[in-house]
Design a protein around this nucleic acid. Sequence first.
DNA 1: ATATTACCGGACATTAGTGTCTTTTATTTA
DNA 2: TAAATAAAAGACACTAATGTCCGGTAATAT
Lengths: 144, 144
Amino acid sequence: MFSKTTEYSIRAIIYLALNNNSKLIGVSEMASELRFPEAFLGKVLQLLVKKQLVGSIKGPGGGFYLIDSTLNLTILNIVDSLEGLEFLDKCGLGLHSCNKNNPCPIHDEYKNVSINVKKALSAKSINEIKNEIENGKRPQSFHF
Amino acid sequence: MFSKTTEYSIRAIIYLALNNNSKLIGVSEMASELRFPEAFLGKVLQLLVKKQLVGSIKGPGGGFYLIDSTLNLTILNIVDSLEGLEFLDKCGLGLHSCNKNNPCPIHDEYKNVSINVKKALSAKSINEIKNEIENGKRPQSFHF
DNA sequence: ATATTACCGGACATTAGTGTCTTTTATTTA
DNA sequence: TAAATAAAAGACACTAATGTCCGGTAATAT
């Protein structure tokens, strides 16, 4: 459903949310905890910094941390920020002229899918996810 | 949502369903009607023949036709046949160990998405879609 | 039979996504 | 100030998807 970049991003953001106790996390620590290829995670984090979802500090003791406002975002917000929601908004069959008045064969069904996906992926904020995990409602170690 | 190959396939199959009056359709006709790149459509049709969703006849007057049983398939069946449904069945965050007893942060929501997509894409068979179009419930010319 | 037609098969080109490696830059610590 | 650390930046490699091109093969028609 999502690209690797988006998958890694979501999991990295949740990881940072869970470890946001005023200490910074390095790429190598995250990569080994999350079982991601380290160099690629580095690139992904670079992107997240550019998108202002994550902050970073260079040098010894440096690393990454979660920008506060990112806690209020939903998974849908993150997906939107990274790869856009065109795949949900465009016609399921790729027809440019498809709309309510000129519906493709699966227009209504796909519209319903789109609404449902958006609802599902915006049901919880990162902060709510963080709380669920910290309250034991979900497993802490979500790597493989 | 779907790959170009899958998009083209679905639209080509519907096109063939609407023009199944015992006459064969050539690649060039389909490509110009559906506004597809001709050479690539050729490859896609080759694939559909191999998957036995479509039949073909060589030589002058030759072309493609829809295999009868394909009329009973749903869009979901076609997607499954072409790219599989792994993108719906696997964890939304790509976690191998994610399941009901060890749910990832968006397990329940994604499960719901998966069910909803499957339901939506299997609501109608190709034959039902064909009838909807022929009865004027949907536009005939679905290209761009 | 032979030329024509149209799909088949394989090779190749292009692009985007994924992933690696090396150098540079910013920061801290000694 | 110099050395060490860690992210940033850029170049590069690999893979899959998309797309093109061409010679081969099967069928038709003259």
